[in-house]
C-alpha cells in the first residue's frame, strides 16, 4: 500500500495556481458536506447522552442541552436494565474484555504461525488449504453456525467463554493468515536463507528472526482483531451464553428492555460507551488501522 502521508506532504506541480479555483471550491464543499454527514451521528450521540429525558421530549435533537449532566452515563454504566438485571453495561464491558483478550491472543498465535508456514515453508497442498480458508472467509457465517453449535455442544463448551474464543479464532483465521503470509513473503528471502544456513530450526527462525521484525504487522493484526471481536454481536449472542454476553449484546438488551418510555439519553450513553474502545483504538492507531483494512484487499 502506498504511504499516503508522504505523497500529500510533498509540494508538486510545476506552475503556481491562483489561490482558489472554483474546482477546489467544489471539492472542499463536497468534502465538508460529507464530513458533516459522517460527524452528525457522533454529535447527536454525545449531546443526547448529556440531556435529561424532559429535554429530549421537549427539545430539538440538534440542540445541545442547556444544562448538561453525566447522570445518564452513570446510569448506563452502573444501573441500566438488561431484561432481568439492572447492573448497567459495565457487566458487558468486562465480559467483552474477557472475550477479546484470549480470542485475540489465540487467533493471532494460530494465524501468525500458519502465515509463516505458508510463506516460508510451503508444502504440498499448503496453498490449497489457504485457498479453502480464503473462500471460507466469504461464506456467510450462518452456513457454519449450526455445525459449530453441534461441535461446541459435543465438547460441552456451548454457552461458555471457550466457545466464543474458539469461534473468533476460526473466523479470524482467514484474514489474519492472509495478513501474516503476505507480510512474511515480503520480507527479504536472504534473511530466511541465512538463518537456515546457520542451522536455525523452524521455531528458531520464527521467534528469533521473524517475530522481532514483525512488530508492525502484529500491531495491525491486534488492532483488526480487537476491534473486530469487540464489535461482534452474532457470535456473542449465540455462543457466549447469557452470563458472558459481550458489550454489544448488553447494549442491545438495554435499549430494547425499556419500560415505560425509552430513556434515549441512557441508551445513547450506553451506545457511546460500547463504541469507545474501538474508537479509541482507531483514533490512536489511525495509520495502522487503515493499513490493516487495506492489506486484505490491496496488498499483493
Amino acid at each position: 500500500m502506498a504511504n499516503t502521508s508522504t505523497i500529500s506532504a510533498e509540494p508538486s506541480g510545476a506552475k503556481p495556481k491562483p489561490f482558489i479555483t472554483w474546482e477546489r471550491a467544489v471539492v472542499y464543499t463536497v468534502l465538508i458536506v460529507c464530513a458533516l454527514f459522517f460527524l452528525l451521528p457522533l454529535y447527536i450521540m454525545i449531546i443526547t447522552s448529556l440531556k435529561s429525558i424532559s429535554e429530549i421530549q421537549g427539545g430539538n435533537i440538534f440542540v445541545p442541552s442547556s444544562n448538561p449532566s453525566l447522570a445518564a452515563w452513570e446510569k448506563a454504566w452502573n444501573s441500566a436494565c438488561t431484561g432481568l438485571y439492572c447492573e448497567g453495561i459495565k457487566v458487558g464491558f468486562w465480559n467483552s474484555i474477557k472475550i477479546t483478550v484470549p480470542s485475540t491472543i489465540v487467533s493471532i498465535a494460530v494465524a501468525s504461525i500458519s502465515g509463516y508456514s505458508l510463506a516460508n515453508w510451503p508444502f504440498k497442498f499448503s496453498e490449497g488449504f489457504f485457498t479453502i480458508l480464503l473462500l471460507g472467509s466469504f461464506i456467510p457465517y450462518v452456513v457454519m453456525l449450526y455445525p459449530i453449535v453441534i461441535i461446541t455442544r459435543y465438547l460441552g463448551i456451548f454457552s461458555t467463554l471457550p466457545a466464543v474464543v474458539l469461534v473468533h479464532t476460526i473466523f479470524g483465521l482467514p484474514i489474519q493468515t492472509l495478513l501474516f503470509r503476505n507480510y512474511f513473503a515480503s520480507l527479504p528471502q536472504e534473511l530466511f536463507k541465512a538463518a537456515r544456513v546457520d542451522g536455525a530450526s523452524y521455531w528458531q527462525i520464527f521467534f528469533r528472526v521473524f517475530v522481532p521484525m514483525s512488530v508492525p504487522i502484529f500491531t495491525v493484526s491486534v488492532i483488526l482483531q480487537v476491534t473486530g471481536i469487540w464489535n461482534d454481536f452474532l457470535f456473542g449472542v449465540i455462543y457466549a451464553g447469557p452470563t458472558n454476553y459481550p458489550m454489544t449484546v448488553q447494549l442491545n438488551n438495554i435499549v430494547n428492555s425499556a419500560q415505560g418510555g425509552k430513556a434515549y439519553n441512557v441508551d445513547m450513553a450506553a451506545t457511546i460507551l460500547t463504541g469507545l474502545v474501538p474508537l479509541t483504538i482507531y483514533f490512536i492507531s489511525g495509520k495502522y488501522f487503515v493499513r490493516g483494512i487495506a492489506a486484505g484487499a490491496v496488498k499483493g
Binding site: 476491534t227 469487540w230 464489535n231 447494549l251 483514533f283
Partner: peptide, 14 residues
Amino acid sequence: LYPFALSFVVTGHV
C-alpha cells in the same frame, strides 16, 4: 472512516 471502527449495533442504535 471512523464509523467503520464502530459496531453495527452502535450504528444501528444511533
